Amino acid sequence: RKEMTAACTPRRRIINLTSVLSLQEEINEQGHEVLREMLHNHSFVGCVNPQWALAQHQTKLYLLNTTKLSEELFYQILIYDFANFGVLRLSEPAPLFDLAMLALDSPESGWTEEDGPKEGLAEYIVEFLKKKAEMLADYFSLEIDEEGNLIGLPLLIDNYVPPLEGLPIFILRLATEVNWDEEKECFESLSKECAMFYSIRKQYISEESTLSGQQSEVPGSIPNSWKWTVEHIVYKALRSHILPPKHFTEDGNILQLANLPDLYKVFERC
């Protein structure tokens, strides 16, 4: 597991931080080997919608929660590849102030007048994250320049770009939802926020969305749709870069829909 690298990086740093090793061990302890084997050997059937997909393993048909699986995938990559990410360069710098204002204007932020003026909160978020810029760049390849612009994001899987519609809320939550006081809790909560931002979430995906850094293989055609990215990038990574937690067998994120021999018997009677 320590050699797990989802995106190509030129050289690998050895990380011996106790906090990170502890988080890696927790993933191992909570892992479910049968689910790992199923995901490793599954045959992708198709997307139901951005949140759900169908896959077959041996004779069984499964309904998989793409949102939760991708979130767990990105969390584990962030923990196992800690401080070893490439950088996704933004085509132009994104001012943190503008991103924070967009987030505060969104109902998702939960902002009320009692929280104070949005401009003041946005300025605080910019200054707060600028103070964390060195650590964010060093460990997470999340790059913020001296003017308070976001200029780079971590490359977690080759050819995958997170849904940038979720970027404003991500920046807001970096400042408000991460435990910045304790090292282990900081790395864990920061990785979880980043994983949620990178995950496939239906509120940020339309039929026209593209999450891939590449064009489709047909010359002159439109960019790959999110469905292509889910199948050929995300579920491909799920084959080798995730140890599913045991609770996925109990919380409805992986559901067995049918045993195909039983279905064949039904059709034979028709």
Rank of each mutant, 00 (worst) to 15 (best):
V126I: 07
L23H: 15
V126E: 13
M4L: 10
L150W: 01
C194R: 00
I222D: 08
I233A: 10
K227H: 04
E231W: 05
L21W: 15
L102N: 03
R13E: 13
H42M: 11
E119P: 03
A83C: 02
T66A: 02
E26T: 05
E147T: 06
G220E: 09
E217W: 11
A53L: 04
T176N: 01
M38T: 08
F267C: 06
N159I: 06
L260R: 05
L260Q: 04
E250A: 08
N41E: 09
F85A: 10
E146G: 04
E134H: 03
I144R: 01
E26M: 04
S225G: 07
L172Y: 02
A94H: 03
A175I: 15
I169H: 13
L121M: 03
A7W: 15
E92V: 06
P244M: 14
E114I: 14
H32I: 08
E119W: 15
S212G: 04
V45S: 12
E188T: 09
H32K: 04
Q30F: 12
L35I: 09
E108W: 03
I151Q: 04
G116Q: 02
K118T: 15
N253S: 07
C47R: 01
R89M: 13
E165R: 04
T210K: 08
E250C: 14
S206G: 09
V234G: 01
K236C: 14
K236N: 13
S109E: 10
S106R: 02
H42L: 11
V87A: 07
C194Y: 07
I157H: 08
N28I: 12
F128Q: 01
E177S: 11
F170G: 00
E147M: 08
Y80Q: 03
E185T: 03
P10K: 12
F187A: 09
K118I: 15
V87Y: 08
Y75F: 07
N259F: 11
C186G: 02
G120H: 14
S141G: 06
S91K: 04
V218L: 07
N49V: 11
E25Y: 14
Y235N: 07
Y198K: 00
T176D: 01
E268V: 12
E146P: 08
R36K: 05
L88R: 08
V87Q: 09
L255I: 06
F170Y: 03
L142H: 01
L121A: 03
P244Q: 14
A175Q: 07
H57E: 06
L136Q: 00
D158T: 06
L238P: 00
I144C: 02
S91E: 09
W226Y: 06
T5W: 15
L190T: 03
K192R: 09
R11M: 14
K184L: 07
K246Q: 12
Y139M: 03
L156G: 00
P168N: 13
Y75R: 04
N159H: 08
V266F: 15
H241Y: 11
M101R: 02
I125W: 01
D105K: 04
F248M: 04
L102V: 04
E26L: 12
I15H: 06
Y204C: 08
T67R: 11
K130M: 14
L23C: 10
L190S: 01
T5S: 11
Q215L: 09
C47K: 01
L255K: 02
Y204E: 08
C47E: 06
D105E: 13
F170A: 00
I169M: 14
A100K: 00
A53R: 00
Y204R: 09
F97N: 02
Q24N: 05
L54N: 01
L21Q: 07
L243M: 13
T5L: 12
I144D: 01
G166M: 07
E143L: 12
V87L: 08
D115F: 15
R12D: 14
L102K: 02
V34L: 10
Q76W: 15
K2N: 14
V161L: 02
P223M: 05
S206F: 13
H42C: 09
P244H: 07
N179G: 03
E165F: 04
W52S: 09
E33G: 07
L63W: 05
V178Q: 00
E177I: 14
D262M: 09
S206R: 06
A122N: 01
S106Q: 02
I144E: 01
C47N: 09
H247S: 05
T5Q: 10
P261R: 13
H32L: 12
P107M: 09
Y75L: 12
G116M: 15
Y75M: 10
Q203G: 04
M196Q: 07
M196P: 00
V45T: 11
E114G: 03
M4W: 13
S221C: 09
T18V: 11
M101H: 04
R36H: 13
S221M: 11
Q215E: 11
V234S: 01
G31I: 13
L150H: 01
W52Q: 09
E177A: 03
L90V: 04
K2F: 14
A53G: 12
I144P: 00
T210C: 05
S189R: 02
L153W: 00
W111A: 15
Y139V: 04
K236D: 13
T112D: 08
I222Q: 07
Q58W: 15
T67F: 09
E33Q: 12
D98M: 08
I14K: 06
W226C: 06
S199K: 06
Y235S: 11
S225C: 09
F97I: 03
E119H: 15
K236S: 13
G220V: 09
T9K: 06
P154S: 00
L21R: 02
S109V: 15
L255W: 15
Q215F: 12
I200S: 06
K2C: 12
R269Q: 03
K60E: 15
H40P: 15
I171G: 00
S189G: 02
F267A: 02
S141A: 10
L39M: 08
N65F: 00
G86F: 13
I151H: 05
L61Y: 00
M38C: 13
F97K: 03
F187Y: 02
L255R: 04
V161S: 06
H32P: 15
Q215Y: 10
P50E: 06
L35S: 04
A100C: 02
E165I: 03
S141V: 07
L164C: 06
E114H: 10
E182P: 01
V178G: 01
Q56A: 05
A7G: 13
E119S: 09
I171M: 05
F267V: 07
E183F: 04
Y264I: 07
I242P: 15
K184C: 06
L172V: 02
V266M: 15
E33H: 13
F197G: 00
L150S: 01
I242S: 14
L153P: 00
E146D: 04
Y80A: 03
T249E: 03
Y264Q: 03
K227A: 07
L167F: 09
F128N: 01
L136C: 14
S22H: 04
H57Q: 12
S191K: 11
L121P: 15
S191L: 02
T176C: 02
Y124L: 13
L136Y: 01
I15K: 07
R201E: 14
D115E: 02
R11G: 09
I15E: 09
P107L: 13
S109Y: 14
P10F: 12
F187Q: 06
E108V: 05
E25R: 11
A7D: 13
N16M: 14
N259L: 04
K131C: 13
R201L: 03
E113I: 04
